[in-house]
Nucleic acid binder design. Structure first.
Lengths: 301, 301
DNA sequence: GTTCTCGATAGCCGAAGCCTATCGCGATCA
DNA sequence: TGATCGCGATAGGCTTCGGCTATCGAGAAC
């Protein structure tokens, strides 16, 4: 049985006339006659009483009409829904962002994203790199913003912008007197985030270290880390976008003597069909952050 | 778009695997791939993310699944309902019966009908001949039981049994002394039903008259007519099946000297598709009334 | 590197659906 | 009563579509 058959059935039942129903369906009258006959054979039920002038639905037919109608309308709902979903730049878009980036980047890009992609419903999700990738591979996220460079054959991505690291010092720290700071100078009393944050590893690596100060001084969030630095527990490296928050916390920022930083990338599954949306999101973010490196360096100076 | 396409869609969405979905649908994997691809083209929406190992429904797909499911289940409801309606001897059967027959015939045949046609839901409808035919032609009745012989090209029918007329007399009427009564003897003081009852015309015709006693003595129902006869207002002809009711009313019944009566027929529309049911109903009634003429004559004697 | 799995593609075949032309029946009208 | 009209059914031919088998190419696993 075919949806077409049901449409024919409904048309004949409505018009009580094969010719008019055929015209309404856009087919010839013989076509309709044959198909209705076939449907009657298939169902084993006479659907219409062909009188001299009219074709009247039988009692059996009338019991089938409701079901037929709901089948046809449901099928049309499929088409209608698909039509409204056709735009790849529309619909829900679940974007994962690492915690050392989200609070500082998202406020900058929400506006431009809403403007450029008005029908994309952006749903941010904040978690650490490994968790984000797991969710991405499980189709629970559509794309993620990462600061790491590893690649995988099942994933694709695009770099968006380079974010410099800045030295974050207590105001009374000896290094605060310098114009720029060498990473190795920080190594002595550097504080880092807890395990799992990519920034932890990157900061340690930049200073040429593999272990940090005592476990009791590992901060679980960048905000806490900044508060610890401001309180004089030590120094740290912060990502450039967090500069504003750091200064608000009363921290002195200094550029590093040699440029060091991380590259923010957007990453999606290689087979992700909404790839245009991911690329568009990336493009908007990249455009918003264009020329960001220089201005941040200027702010810090 | 086809119901088949929706079934395929549901299968792939459920199994998240083209090969297994194909096996579940009973088709080859290429068939499924092609049809899903076509559906995606038609809808303008990517339905599945084909990863290395699995095919995952996209967000858009998931929004379509409910509609697709309800379309498929509604279509299956059409088939299931049709299957349950397939028996032509099942379902509602609206039977019109004339008022001078219904109260006396129906009690006799309800039992046999229930027994012979257990899934036929008989709905009796009592009205005069003209009204019954109108409802029959309007598809508001499926068949009617009539006592008239006229035929029409759009109707078909079958005779069921012959019902004799009996002379109905007040107990003290002079004719009550005779063994049999001639119709013409009744003519003098015959009472008849009101306009519209076929029995009225038949009774008058039997007596060779065209007008009856004064209008004030036209009864609107056979029961009233019997009561009038019992009260001595006059005589009448009653159909044989009403003999019991007449005797209960205290009326003397006599057979007519020459057999006179009416033939009860069942009539349905020429194109009526449930004709087997109409014929079966007629057959059951005819069988129940077989040999009825003689026994009634015996009762009256 | 080899093998296995999975989905996509190619090429062919039969069924199904649609069309036009025509028929047959019944109703209507002259 | 015969001609005409309207309606649904039927016949024959064409095209499309959905199905199959065989095969390919990509990616994962051994």
């Amino acid at each position: 049985m075919n949806l077409r058959d049901l449409r024919y059935l409904l048309a004949v039942a409505e018009h009580e006339h094969f010719g008019r129903a055929a015209r309404a369906c856009g087919v010839s009258q013989p076509t309709l006659s044959v198909q209705i006959r076939k449907l009657e054979d298939l169902l084993g039920v006479v659907l219409f009483e062909r009188g001299g002038k009219t074709a009247t639905p039988t009692a059996a037919c009338r019991q089938l009409l409701d079901h037929a109608r709901s089948a046809v309308t449901a099928a049309e709902a499929v088409l209608a829904t698909a039509r409204s979903l056709r735009d790849p730049l529309a619909g829900r878009f679940r974007l994962g962002v690492i915690p050392t980036l989200a609070p500082y980047l998202l406020p900058l890009v929400f506006g431009p994203l809403r403007e450029a992609l008005p029908s994309l419903e952006l749903e941010p999700w904040e978690d650490q790199t490994a968790a984000l990738l797991e969710r991405l591979r499980a189709h629970e996220l559509d794309a993620v913003l990462l600061a790491t460079d590893e690649t995988a054959p099942d994933l694709m991505g695009a770099p968006l912008f380079a974010e410099p690291f800045l030295a974050a010092l207590p105001p009374d720290h000896p290094l605060a007197a310098r114009e720029a700071v060498a990473e190795t100078d920080l190594a002595r009393d550097i504080l880092v985030l807890s395990d799992g944050h990519c920034l932890r590893d990157q900061a340690l690596e930049a200073c040429g270290q593999t272990t940090a100060l005592g476990a009791s001084l590992r901060a679980s969030s960048l905000t806490t880390l900044l508060n610890m630095v401001a309180a004089g527990y030590g120094t740290t490296l912060i990502p450039g976008l967090a500069a504003g928050a750091a200064q608000d916390a009363g921290i002195v920022l200094r550029p590093l003597s040699t440029w060091t930083g991380r590259t923010i990338r957007i990453v999606w599954r290689a087979h992700f069909p909404q790839r245009p949306a991911a690329e568009a999101v990336g493009e908007v973010i990249a455009r918003r952050l264009r020329g960001y490196t220089e201005s941040t360096a200027a702010d810090a100076a």
